[in-house]
Simulated assay, not measured.
Amino acid sequence: MRRAAIVGTGAIATSHAEALRACGERIELVAVVDVDADRASAFASEWGVRVHPSLAALLDAEQLDVVHICTPPRSHVPLALECLAADVNVLVEKPPALSLSEIDTLIAAEHGSAGRVATVFQHRFGPAAIRLRRLAAEGVLGRSLVAKCDTLWYRGDAYFDVPWRGTWENEGGGPTMGHGIHQFDLLLSVLGPWQEIRALAARQARDVATEDVSMALVTFADGTVASVINSLLSPRETSELRFDFERATVEVEHLYGYSDEHWTVTPAPGQDEVVARWREEQSGMVSGHRCQLEAFLDALDSGETPPVTLADTRNTMEFIAALYASAFTGTVVKAGQIGPDSPFYATMEGIGAPWANAR
């Protein structure tokens, strides 16, 4: 049986612990770490595991196959680097890093380690998303033409009372980094390489340093055009993706996780066989941490690199950097344009948000 530990026992840690338990005898949660000793002890008592005072102590005391990093974003990369130095695999919550520079630091460290880093982008792993990518790759749906991706959520002022929220230095960005990232990562996993972005970002209502809403128009390498909205200002919350292919429209509307019942397929005239192909496989599984963890364990068992790789993650993080760069400079930003000489490489804030001086 493989052995796992969780660093950071806040709210999201429960999802990880539940996923580990759901995997049965494949893997066991053995220990946790948290800067809040009381919180760590309460979590450990609930799940019947040991507590260690630090990641260093954990790595020294336990033989581990994977460490789940569930801490606030600013600490993700330092903790992942510590695990890689110990040759331990890492499953890190989103956002995995605060910048492209940090992602490249992780990539370099991974090259010298027996451990591997995977990012938690669990919506890639729901059965319907896997089916969609396969049918698209097989040509069943025809050419991709138009898409949209909306993360319309609501976070009131009290949400930002947590000190690290709403700041560039601790969270790395607003809803583009911490909320919409799940939906547009799924979009990118379906549509493949993006080519260029035209974007805007605004601070409409929340007293934060980051944006509270962003929008982008995206052109993909295959010619698909897409819109992306990331909002924390939307009282009717929803997460929606729509893909218009030549032979069908494929849509999903959910909030924090989907099953097959959240998806609809509308065939173009004369293309009813597309719906039949979609319905050949049905699943009641809800997209979530368990789906990704099972794929992670499958990869370890077969000696493959666990999904989502740092190369996959870098593509999504570059998309975010390009969105901010386009929004803050008022220019079109192309894939590959943001390198070490760009102000948006070391920080998503780049040259600074237009509203920075108004605070």
Rank of each mutant, 00 (worst) to 15 (best):
M1C: 02
A4I: 02
V7R: 01
G8S: 05
T9N: 00
T9M: 02
I12R: 01
I12G: 00
A13Q: 02
S15P: 01
A22W: 01
E28Y: 03
V33F: 00
V35F: 00
R39K: 08
S45H: 10
W47R: 05
R50V: 11
L55P: 01
L55S: 08
L64T: 09
D65M: 04
D65E: 08
T71P: 01
P73K: 05
S75M: 09
S75Y: 11
H76S: 10
V77Y: 11
P78R: 00
P78L: 07
P78C: 06
L79D: 13
A85T: 12
V92L: 13
E93N: 08
P96Y: 07
A97I: 12
A97T: 11
S99Q: 04
L100Q: 11
E102K: 05
D104T: 00
A109Q: 05
H111W: 11
H111A: 15
H111Q: 15
T119E: 09
Q122Y: 14
R124S: 03
A129F: 03
L132I: 10
R134L: 12
A137E: 04
E138F: 05
G142I: 04
R143M: 04
C149A: 03
C149D: 04
C149P: 02
F160C: 02
D161V: 06
V162G: 02
P163M: 01
G166L: 06
W168P: 05
G173Q: 03
P175Q: 06
M177V: 14
M177I: 09
H182Y: 14
H182C: 03
Q183F: 09
Q183S: 14
L188K: 04
P193E: 15
P193Y: 03
W194I: 05
Q195E: 15
I197V: 15
L200V: 12
R206Q: 14
E211K: 02
D212H: 03
V213S: 01
M215H: 13
A216D: 07
L217M: 06
F220A: 00
S227K: 01
I229G: 07
P235W: 04
E237P: 14
T238H: 09
T238V: 14
F243T: 00
D244V: 06
D244K: 06
E246Y: 12
E246M: 12
R247I: 02
A248M: 04
A248F: 07
T249L: 08
E253K: 15
E253N: 11
Y258F: 14
T266L: 09
A268E: 12
Q271D: 14
Q271W: 08
D272C: 08
E273S: 14
V275S: 12
A276M: 12
R277M: 10
Q282H: 08
Q282D: 06
Q282S: 14
S283T: 02
M285V: 15
S287E: 13
R290D: 10
R290T: 15
L293M: 08
E294H: 09
F296T: 00
A299V: 08
L300A: 06
D301P: 14
S302A: 15
S302G: 04
G303Q: 12
G303R: 00
P307T: 07
P307R: 03
V308W: 07
T309E: 11
A311N: 10
R314Y: 04
A321M: 11
A321F: 12
F328Q: 07
V332H: 08
V333D: 09
K334T: 10
G339H: 00
D341S: 13
P343E: 09
P343N: 07
Y345Q: 04
G352M: 05
G352L: 03
A353I: 01
P354F: 07
P354W: 13
